[in-house]
Design a binder for these strands. Structure first.
Lengths: 114, 114
DNA sequence: TTAATATATGAACAAATGTTCAAATGAAGA
DNA sequence: TCTTCATTTGAACATTTGTTCATATATTAA
């Protein structure tokens, strides 16, 4: 239960900060992107594609995952426009869809290695 | 089951990309950061703190969450060095710990608004 | 058409996650 | 000391999530 009495709230600061928040919809979309990159196996796929485009089969080999698992993850990434694909005969090639993605990854690498 | 025969794998490409991958430990840490930002309520807290430091109570007010829920989320963010805190009497003030965080947020906003 | 191959999909399951509620700290003032 | 208040913590719960397995689709070649 919310046991913080009215007094402890600095209404002015609360109001001011509330005004700086992006629309709820944007927050949701940002969270979706972060969430997608927040799974190690999915992040590994993205990192692999950051190097060059690959077919599903090769991604699975690079990442030590089954084709099926990779395919499922790629669908998530595709839905969020993090990766895109092109078909060449039987083979489907995947690659990074957006420049922001590589920038995001670079930032987080910097953070990790402080 | 992995039903992709050996033939479909481009060994050279696989090997080459595998060499570009960061160490597993780094991938895990990056994923942790993304995962932390991947929950809307937690992301909202971070966005609020990006504006200015706040006490737990005020964060709860800004984000329409209970104090308890906010406190739980702040612990996660603190553990990952995304936020830091300082005590002033009974009140605990939280703020963003790292510059990389704001950069990450900005990138994802750009991505969302393409 | 039929067979073979690369990828996609659906259902089921275990594991992880966020929220809630109740209770416990820790700090300040009476 | 005792009380009050801001925050933290722990356990329980429902929900979400990633993986697996079996099956389906789509493309090519025979």
């Amino acid at each position: 239960m919310d046991n913080c009495s009215i007094k402890c709230i600095n209404e002015e600061k609360v109001k001011q900060t509330a005004e700086t928040l992006p629309p709820t919809e944007d927050i949701g979309r940002m969270a979706d992107i972060f969430k997608a990159l927040g799974d190690p196996s999915r992040l590994k796929i993205v990192l692999a594609l950051l190097n060059q485009e690959h077919c599903v089969c090769d991604i699975a080999a690079v990442c030590n995952q089954t084709d099926s698992a990779v395919s499922h993850q790629l669908r998530v990434l595709r839905t969020l426009k993090i990766v895109k694909n092109r078909r060449d005969g039987k083979i489907m090639y995947y690659s990074i869809d957006d420049d922001h993605v590589s920038a995001l990854i670079r930032m987080s690498l910097d953070h990790v290695r402080h």
